[in-house]
Write a protein that binds this DNA or RNA. Structure first.
Lengths: 228, 228
DNA sequence: CGGGATCCCCCGAGATACTG
DNA sequence: CAGTATCTCGGGGGATCCCG
């Protein structure tokens, strides 16, 4: 059983061979937000050893999940970009992220929220909430720690992306702690969240209830005990 | 960043901390089929070192995904069983298994099909095929290598389980090689599969087309190249 | 005989330094 | 900026041993 293989003709085993190594899924999470340079990845994955990042990118390239491209034009930086095969991973990684988020309660000491994590959280939360069906497009900007992401709700579609939006209808700043996560779980009402200072909103504050209904992260009731 | 942690308040990072270690997802795959004893797990995971299996079970117990129970009655064997929290993993593991299966072409040298892998494959394939909507319940038995599993199709519901079924309507024996997988992908017609000897059927052979429509495993068209 | 524990070896991850 | 080189060390692989 050399190195990564499991010796089973099984989809889950093959997936585990490709994704089960340390840092690999988080690298893909970041690249699925958009093409990134080596230093972008290193900055978005605090604590990753540089040799491990280099090794993982090489493996992902050999596995056909990432391509390495010299960006055209005067800019001669190298960018890493996901392949179509890696994009097919989105449903699976989102399901894993949703499951993991359902078990999250409070941030551990020193844990940070990165931009890719915030974008992924918005995308996953959009799938767990009530389909919006708004008449006109609504844009949100969310800030948590150093991270900034935006979401555009148009019809029943929600798209999440990194960074600011030029003219958000509502901006939400999440204070550190479990408050924002509880609001997304529905265990803390949006109004109480504002009243208790766990979030600060600016813009069209009437949209906050709409936001809380559109974006929902599951909250596992069963964190212990045997299955029924 | 000791050992398993990633230092990010992110659902995917938390999931990776719990599941990202070697063998962990395959252990859960086996336990999600049903409670298993230590020796059952060891037999179903050929190549796993015994100390790693013991360590993983201990971690899974501490993480609240597995409980260790002394089976009642005269039998004093210990069984491991998943918790409700682990059962919530089924959609995510199935999505991963589906993605991994979409990239599988031919078995590698020495790869085996275990019982848990076959049951999982049937469950995943049932979600990828056409909803059956049969009038009466239909039962299938599938054999691949040493593994045996069965599926019961009733209305629009499909349940997959390990081992034989007392009175299957159709029994399918898959010869080793990529043939059965190609039939499930739809790239090899059921009739050709029989004609070429990649499967052998017994029972109500008219049900084979029904089987091939009900169970479908995706076949990724993009095994290389950058995303569109 | 089921359910592990123990031992040794070595690969791979973590940390740091350095270079094209 | 984008990695490579080098070192250490913990954890996985493999075999064997042990205990109720």
């Amino acid at each position: 059983m050399r190195t990564r293989e499991y010796g089973q003709f099984c989809g889950l085993a093959r997936a585990a061979e490709l994704l089960g190594q340390r840092w690999t899924m988080l690298i893909l999470r970041d690249l699925l937000v958009g093409p990134r340079r080596y230093s972008d990845l290193a900055a978005g994955l605090p604590g990753i050893p540089t040799n491990v990042l280099a090794a993982r990118l090489k493996e992902l390239e050999q596995d056909g999940l990432v391509v390495r491209q010299a960006r055209g034009g005067g800019d001669r930086a190298i960018v890493y970009q996901v392949t179509g095969r890696a994009e097919e991973l989105v449903p699976a990684l989102d399901a894993l992220a949703s499951w993991g988020a359902a078990g999250m309660r409070v941030p551990r000491e020193g844990e940070v929220v990165t931009e890719a994590a915030l974008v992924t959280a918005l995308r996953v939360a959009a799938a767990g909430g009530r389909p919006p069906g708004v008449r006109r497009a609504v844009t949100y900007v969310v800030r948590a720690g150093e991270a900034v992401a935006h979401a555009i709700v148009s019809g029943t579609r929600v798209t999440a992306g990194p960074g600011e939006h030029p003219a958000p209808d509502l901006t939400i700043v999440a204070r550190s702690g479990p408050g924002f996560r509880e609001m997304l779980a529905g265990t803390l009402g949006a109004d109480e969240a504002v009243a208790e200072g766990v979030i600060e909103v600016s813009g069209d504050k009437a949209l906050l209830a709409e936001f809380a209904a559109t974006f929902r992260v599951p909250y596992s009731p069963s964190l212990t005990g045997p299955a029924a």
